[in-house]
Amino acid sequence: MQCSYFDAHACRSCTLLELPYADQVRGKEERCAELLGAAPDLQWLPTVRSREDGYRNKAKMVVGGTVDRPTLGILDAGGRGVDLRECPVVAAGIRAVLPQLARFATRAGLTPYDVPRRRGELKHVLVTESPTGELMVRFVLRSDRALPRLREHLPRLLQEAPRIRVVTANLLPEHKAVLEGEVEVALTERTTLPMPLGRVELDLRPRSFFQTNTDVATALYAQVREWVEEVAPSTVWDLYCGVGGFALHVAAPGRHVVGIEVSEEAVESARLAARGVPGVEFAAGDATAFALASVQVPDLVVVNPPRRGIGEDLAGWLERSGVQHVVYSSCNPETLATDLRAMPSLRPVRARVLDMFPHTPHVEVAVLLSR
């Protein structure tokens, strides 16, 4: 993939870009195989590769520049905006709407937030694209003072960019290196973005997590469903369930599935998507606390933790519990390896690398463990 921003040293986020894609994938395969070790019964399935460009279904753009000439991209070392509207890894449908969002910010008089001086209003523009081509747009603001101007100019934006279906303002008053705040203000009647993935349609709310690469996420859900069907459990826990992707994909007649997620926003998304699906329930809570407090042990547990992994408490519970099968979907093979060492009775029998983030060292790996 060719990137003018990388060549000009304006953005070097894709640190592996100079490597041929086949070499990138090979390196990730070797790293995962080394970390998981030589398990005697482990079968590695062919890697799920991504397209090399346009794979990101979301853009997280820092706003810089001025009201009249805002930049959407990143900040340089001095806190100045670097415009990356044509970033080639971002989906074409998102790139097409970024100029319209920049013009909207100008019309609404949204002053870009000046990080070094700690003044200004508009901090980030976050855009997510559904497989249907519909868009969710979130403006991250320092305060609610600009909300009347957003509402005033929003009808024109929706007329110019009809694929935008959900618009919100997120309020982040603090000066800190985070992407969003706790308060979300809906500016459109619709507040969820449908995310159809194969036979399942998820409903994404503004502050809910969803995988960044739709094609590879679809393959991941399909792989986990295949492994679960192979085991045919009657009861399943989906811990760190997010918006319910794994739970809804493994739902089946006669099977009871429980999804646990700390984010109440994500749980609301999961419940919305689960309407009419029998045998599936979701609850907001800490995954480890839920497991430790439970008197029941399911036939199979799916875990999809953040980069820190599941940790020694949950790994210890899985080791002691007697649960027969675990499907571990990891975005950090280093913490996956640490967690596997803490539950030696659960042996890896299937594993698959999924290249969710081409041109970067990040990699997803899914593993089926059996006692």
Rank of each mutant, 00 (worst) to 15 (best):
A10D: 14
C11I: 05
C11G: 04
C11E: 04
L16H: 13
L17K: 10
E18I: 05
Y21H: 14
V25H: 10
K28A: 11
A38M: 00
A39E: 13
A39Y: 04
P40T: 02
L42C: 05
P46L: 05
G54S: 12
R56V: 06
R56P: 05
V62H: 12
V63K: 13
G64Y: 14
G64H: 13
G65V: 13
G65K: 13
T66N: 06
V67W: 04
V67Q: 07
D68G: 09
R69G: 05
P70L: 14
T71D: 13
D76S: 04
G79D: 10
V82L: 06
D83R: 10
R85E: 15
A92E: 15
I94M: 01
R95N: 12
L101Q: 02
A102R: 06
R103Q: 14
R107A: 15
R107D: 12
P112H: 09
P112W: 09
Y113P: 07
D114L: 13
D114A: 12
V115T: 12
R117Y: 11
L122V: 13
L122H: 09
H124T: 05
L126S: 00
E129Q: 15
T132G: 12
T132M: 13
L135A: 02
M136F: 00
V137T: 00
R138C: 04
L141C: 09
D144E: 14
A146E: 08
P148Y: 01
R151A: 01
E152S: 00
H153K: 04
H153E: 06
H153A: 03
Q159T: 15
A161N: 03
A161T: 15
A169C: 02
L171A: 05
L172M: 15
E174G: 03
E174I: 03
H175F: 12
K176E: 07
L179K: 03
E182M: 05
E184Q: 04
V185G: 02
E189N: 02
R190I: 00
R190F: 01
T191G: 00
T191D: 02
P196W: 09
V200F: 09
L204K: 05
R205M: 02
F209Q: 07
F209N: 07
F210Y: 15
Q211S: 09
V216L: 12
A217C: 13
Y221W: 03
A222L: 03
E226F: 00
W227Y: 02
V228N: 05
A232C: 12
S234L: 15
V236C: 13
W237T: 14
W237R: 13
D238Y: 03
L239H: 11
Y240N: 06
G245M: 02
F246E: 00
L248V: 01
H249Y: 06
H256K: 15
G259Y: 01
E264K: 09
E265Q: 14
V267T: 02
V267I: 04
P278D: 15
E281C: 07
A283N: 03
A284V: 04
D286M: 10
D299K: 13
V303M: 10
R307G: 01
G311N: 10
L318I: 09
G322V: 10
Q324E: 15
H325D: 09
S330C: 08
C331E: 06
C331F: 11
T335M: 13
D339I: 11
R341L: 14
P344I: 02
V349K: 04
R350Y: 03
A351I: 10
R352L: 08
V353K: 15
M356K: 14
F357H: 08
P358F: 12
H359N: 11
P361C: 09
H362M: 06
E364A: 08
L369D: 07
